[in-house]
Amino acid sequence: MPEITKTERNRKLVLEGFAEFARGNIDILRTLLAEDFVEHSPGNPSGRDAFIDFIAHAPVAGAQLELKRAIADEQYVVMHYLMTPQGEERGTAVVDIWRLEDGLIVEHWDVVQPVPEPAEIPNGMF
């Protein structure tokens, strides 16, 4: 049986963690993030514990998350998904970029864009 590559292992780790988080398990982040995790999004704190405390109260924590695609390359996993917080109709398009080392997420970047009216995106957001 062929050995799993680093890319495949990291992709699986992040996607399984995303699925668990999407089911409401915020504590899964404690097993995925390095203690000295670095966050690059404006207003979001770095450090595993500070980041988890922040995310637990952010709109993403209670939102419906619908993964559209994932791309992995060695130490990076990129996810493109629709985040629809409770009470919102169209939601938000999100791209997360996760960098991993030794089986843990050590860095994160994101791009977040509200989904506009359908007439404004004739080819769709996803």
Rank of each mutant, 00 (worst) to 15 (best):
L15D: 08
W109M: 09
K12N: 13
D73S: 12
V14Q: 07
R69V: 02
N10D: 10
A22L: 10
A93N: 07
A93F: 05
D110N: 09
H40Y: 08
A93I: 01
H57V: 03
L13D: 09
L29K: 10
V77G: 14
G43I: 09
D53I: 02
E107D: 14
A93G: 13
E101D: 13
H80V: 10
I52N: 05
P42M: 11
I4C: 08
Y81H: 13
V115H: 03
V94P: 00
E39C: 03
E120P: 00
D49E: 15
M83G: 03
I28P: 13
L29M: 15
L67C: 07
D73A: 08
A63F: 05
V106G: 14
N44G: 00
I28E: 11
G24P: 10
A56V: 07
S46C: 05
P2S: 14
I26Q: 03
R90M: 10
L33Y: 09
V38M: 13
F54C: 07
I26D: 02
P42S: 14
D110A: 10
L100R: 14
K68L: 04
R9W: 05
H80T: 05
H108D: 01
F18H: 12
D27P: 06
F37P: 00
P118C: 07
I71W: 02
V95I: 15
Q86A: 15
F18A: 12
G103C: 14
H80A: 04
I26F: 02
F51R: 01
A63Q: 05
Q64N: 05
V78N: 11
G124Q: 10
S41D: 09
E120F: 05
V38K: 14
A63C: 07
D96G: 03
T84A: 06
L15V: 09
M83F: 03
G87H: 06
V78P: 12
D36C: 02
D53P: 00
T7Q: 12
F21V: 08
P42W: 06
A19W: 07
M1N: 10
T31W: 00
K6G: 09
L33Q: 02
R90P: 10
G43S: 10
R69E: 12
G24W: 05
Q113Y: 06
V14L: 15
K12G: 03
I55E: 04
F126G: 15
P42L: 11
A19D: 14
R90A: 12
G124S: 06
H80G: 04
A50C: 02
A63E: 06
V14F: 12
I121F: 02
N44L: 08
P85S: 06
M83K: 11
N25W: 04
R23S: 13
T92C: 06
E89I: 08
S46M: 04
I71E: 00
V77W: 00
H40K: 08
E3W: 01
I105V: 15
L15R: 07
D73F: 01
T92D: 03
M83S: 14
V94C: 09
R30W: 06
G47S: 04
A19F: 04
E120H: 07
N44C: 10
P2V: 11
V77R: 12
P85Y: 05
P118L: 07
Q64D: 11
E66P: 00
I4F: 05
E35D: 13
D36N: 13
D49C: 03
G87Y: 07
